[in-house]
C-alpha cells in the first residue's frame, strides 16, 4: 500500500489562495499533524486532500477513493438512532458490522438513542466511529478531539494508533497533543501572504 503524497500543492478558499508550496509524504503506518492558527487553511487543505475541492496547483495522490474524511460536521441525522446512523454509513462503504465501531467509542449503551439527544461529546464519538466503518486506509480528521473528555480523547488516540498499526495513515488537524508519534507540519511557513506572492500561484489558473 502506498502512502499519501502531496506535490507542490496550493489551496484556496473562496478564490483566495491560503497555502502554497506544500509538499509532503506520509508513509503507511504513520501520522501527520497539521498545526497553525485559526483560518490558516487546515480545513481547506484537508478538503483538498479529500478530493472535495480541486487544488489550485499541484497534485495529491492517491485520489479520494482511499480517503475517509472526518469533518466538523459529522453528517449524522438527529432523528435517526445511533445504530441507524452508523448502519447507513457502514452499508454505504460496504462494511457489515457496526458493533466494533460502537464498542471502540463506547456507544453501545447509546445505540438506540436518537442522535439529536446525544451530548456534544457523545455526538463527536459517533462521528469518529464512522471513520472505523469506512474501511479506508487514509483518515483525514479535522479537529477530532473537540468536545471530547479526557477518557474519550485517550480512546480516540487508541483508535488512531490501532489504525496506524494496521498500516493506515492519519492526517490530523489538531491543537491537542494526542500522544501519537507523528510528523508535525507547521502551516504558517506555507501561508500565502497577500501582496508578497509572485510566480506560479497566480500565474496559471489561480483565479477562476
Amino acid at each position: 500500500m502506498s502512502g499519501l503524497a502531496a506535490r507542490d500543492l496550493a489551496v484556496a478558499r473562496g478564490g483566495v489562495p491560503l497555502l502554497a508550496g506544500l509538499s509532503f509524504d506520509v508513509a503507511p503506518g504513520s501520522a501527520l499533524v497539521l498545526t497553525g492558527r485559526n483560518g490558516i487553511g487546515k480545513t481547506t487543505l484537508l478538503r483538498t486532500l479529500a478530493g472535495l475541492q480541486p487544488p489550485l496547483v499541484g497534485e495529491v495522490t492517491p485520489g479520494g477513493d482511499r480517503i475517509a474524511y472526518g469533518a466538523h460536521a459529522d453528517g449524522m441525522k438527529g432523528t435517526l438512532t445511533v445504530a441507524e446512523n452508523l448502519a447507513f454509513w457502514a452499508k454505504m462503504h460496504g462494511a457489515g458490522d457496526i458493533a466494533a465501531a460502537l464498542e471502540a467509542f463506547q456507544l453501545s449503551a447509546l445505540r438506540d438513542r436518537a442522535a439529536q439527544h446525544l451530548s456534544a461529546g457523545q455526538r463527536r464519538r459517533l462521528g469518529l466511529a464512522r471513520m472505523l466503518l469506512t474501511g479506508r486506509p487514509i483518515w483525514l480528521l479535522d479537529e477530532p478531539t473537540v468536545s471530547l473528555d479526557r477518557d474519550s480523547v485517550l480512546r480516540f488516540a487508541d483508535a488512531v494508533r490501532a489504525h496506524l498499526g494496521g498500516g493506515g495513515i492519519a492526517v490530523l488537524a489538531s491543537h491537542v497533543d494526542l500522544g501519537i508519534e507523528a510528523q508535525v507540519l507547521e502551516l504558517e511557513a506555507f501561508r500565502v501572504r497577500p501582496g508578497t506572492v509572485q510566480g506560479d500561484v497566480f500565474a496559471g489558473e489561480a483565479v477562476e
Binding site: A50, A71, H72, D74, G75, M76, M92
Partner: peptide
Amino acid sequence: EDGALDLL
C-alpha cells in the same frame, strides 16, 4: 448543513 453531503 450537517456535513452528510461531503461524506456522500
